[in-house]
C-alpha cells in the first residue's frame, strides 16, 4: 500500500511540474515528456496494485481512481491535438484531482479484496475497460462542452465543436460496447441479459440521453453542449450515485 501511495505522490509531482513547464516556462515539449513520465509512474501504480491483488485494477472505487488518471494521461499524449490549449490544463487538473481523491480515500476502501465468483470472467476485461474508455471520452467532452458554452461566439473555438463531436462518438460507441458486452456476460453468468438492475437502467439512460445528441440539428451547438452536460451528469450518477445510493446486482462496484 505504501508503494502505491508513494507512486501516486510521484505522479502528482510530475504532473504539477508538467503544468509549470507548460504555463510558466511555455515549453510544451518538456511538459509532454513529463506527462509521459507520469504515465509510466501511473502504469507502475496499476501494475503494483494488479500484482498484489492478483486481478486487474478496476474492481472497486479506489482502483478506478488510479485507473482513470492513467487513461486521461494517455489521452493527453496519444490525442495531443484534440486535448490541447486550455483543455489540456483542465484535464491535467482533473487528473490531479482524481489522484488526490485516490490518496484521501479511507483505508478500508483501499484494502485488496478478492474477486467474487461472478467477476471471474473474461468478459470483465472487455465490459469494464469499455466503460472507462467511454467515461474518459465523456469527461473530455464535458470540458469541451463547458468551453463551448462559455466562449460560444469565439471563432477560434470552431475546432472545439469538431473535437467535441469526436469525443461524444467515442463515448457513445464505448457506452454501447459496455452495455452489450455486459448483457452477454450477464447472460452467461445469471441466465438473463437484462435484469432492470439500477446500474443497467442508468447505463441505458446514459445512452438514451446521448442518442438525443445525434438527433439534433448539426448547427444547434448550444443544445448539443447542453446535452453533453446532462449526459455527463447522468454518467456521474451511474458511477457514483447508483453505487452508493441504489442497491442492486452491481453493488460491489
Amino acid at each position: 500500500m505504501n508503494l502505491e501511495f508513494n507512486l501516486i505522490v510521484v505522479a502528482i509531482c510530475t504532473l504539477l511540474l508538467s503544468l509549470f513547464y507548460s504555463i510558466k516556462i511555455k515549453n510544451q515539449n518538456i511538459s509532454t515528456y513529463l506527462i509521459f513520465m507520469a504515465i509510466i509512474v501511473q502504469f507502475l501504480t496499476l501494475a503494483t496494485r494488479s500484482y498484489l491483488a492478483k486481478h486487474p485494477p478496476f474492481t472497486n472505487m479506489y482502483e478506478t481512481m488510479i485507473l482513470l488518471p492513467f487513461l486521461f494521461s494517455l489521452r493527453l499524449v496519444l490525442w495531443k491535438k484534440q486535448v490541447s490549449g486550455n483543455t489540456k490544463y483542465y484535464v491535467i487538473s482533473l487528473i490531479l484531482f482524481l489522484d488526490l481523491i485516490a490518496l484521501s480515500l479511507p483505508a478500508d476502501m483501499k484494502v485488496i479484496k478478492p474477486l467474487m465468483p461472478a467477476l471471474n470472467s473474461l468478459w470483465m476485461y472487455i465490459h469494464v475497460p469499455a466503460y472507462f474508455v467511454a467515461y474518459s471520452s465523456m469527461l473530455i467532452a464535458f470540458i469541451l462542452a463547458i468551453l463551448l458554452l462559455i466562449n460560444g461566439q469565439n471563432s477560434k473555438l470552431k475546432n472545439l465543436e469538431k473535437i467535441l463531436n469526436e469525443e461524444v462518438k467515442i463515448g457513445f460507441f464505448f457506452l454501447n460496447t459496455g452495455l452489450i458486452t455486459g448483457a452477454i456476460w450477464a447472460y452467461f453468468c445469471w441466465g438473463t441479459y437484462w435484469e432492470w438492475d439500477p446500474k443497467e437502467v442508468w447505463s441505458l439512460i446514459n445512452i438514451l440521453v446521448l442518442v438525443y445528441y445525434f438527433h439534433l440539428n448539426k448547427h444547434s451547438k448550444l443544445k448539443k453542449s447542453l446535452i453533453v452536460l446532462i449526459a455527463f451528469l447522468t454518467i456521474i450518477f451511474t458511477y457514483f450515485g447508483v453505487t452508493f445510493i441504489l442497491a442492486g446486482l452491481h453493488s460491489y462496484t
Partner: peptide
C-alpha cells in the same frame, strides 16, 4: 425518449 428517460429515472 424524453418520457422514457424520465420514467426510467423515477422508477430506479
Amino acid at each position: 425518449s424524453g418520457i422514457i428517460i424520465i420514467l426510467l429515472i423515477f422508477a430506479t
